[in-house]
Write a protein that binds this DNA or RNA. Structure first.
Lengths: 114, 114
DNA sequence: ATTATATACATAAGAAAATTAGGTGTTAAT
DNA sequence: ATTAACACCTAATTTTCTTATGTATATAAT
């Protein structure tokens, strides 16, 4: 459980991007996917995830759909039209931010190299 | 002017890294350097910068030295021994975080390629 | 049988780190 | 005389996270 406390604000982008690739996902699934993709290095806590999902839903970026699987409740989220637009916005903001970070932190860095 | 609101968590790293490269800098100088390096895309606000500098100083990462230039006061910051160690720590944390972000957001991404 | 772990949702208290908005004072330019 | 740039600072608020807790079912281990 390394430090997960870097660059607050990227959780929304992560959620939106995963949903762009997956059509529909439920909360627990998102935590597992992130854990898997980062080999356990990033763990999305439920205390962060669920409020973030609820906020994105309230903002009209996501819609939900309840499914019952083996007596367990799953709340599936998917992107709305607005949500689809928001993915691109958030992704380019994040990419430009990371690029700027490189320019600050790595004076050797040029866009297009490593 | 694009969004400036993604810096959360990386400001300390930025400060420490700039001071590693520059021996000593004062607050205003840091804001200008960042603005310059990012072509105006990232603007460090004073309300974020000064508290961050004070915190790093309180934690023993930075020392200060006042200079007077044309009746103006400048508070120069430099890294302590602990601060020098902290730069490496924070830099590798940030690098690993950015790597993990890529793995989540860009399924095509492989370390060592663009 | 009971306990622990995994699955699956959720909220609440508090901390951390920003934003926004204000304040002080000097120097240089219009 | 006023604005902009230089140079420091703090306070109130907001956002976003961590930590802790709660509910409930399913499954594996003891």
């Amino acid at each position: 459980m390394s430090n997960n406390n870097l660059i607050k604000g990227s959780l929304q982008t992560i959620i939106l991007k995963l949903l762009e690739e997956n059509e529909k996902m439920y909360g627990y699934e998102i935590t597992q996917r992130v854990k898997e993709l980062t080999e356990g290095e990033i763990k999305i806590t439920e205390g962060a995830l669920y409020p973030a999902l609820h906020k994105l839903e309230a903002e009209g970026m996501l819609t939900t759909e309840i499914q019952h699987v083996d007596n367990r409740v799953r709340k599936y989220y998917s992107l709305t039209k607005d949500g689809q637009k928001e993915v691109s916005t958030k992704m380019s903001e994040l990419q430009s931010f990371v690029g700027n970070l490189q320019r600050i932190l790595d004076p050797e860095w040029k866009p297009g190299l490593a």
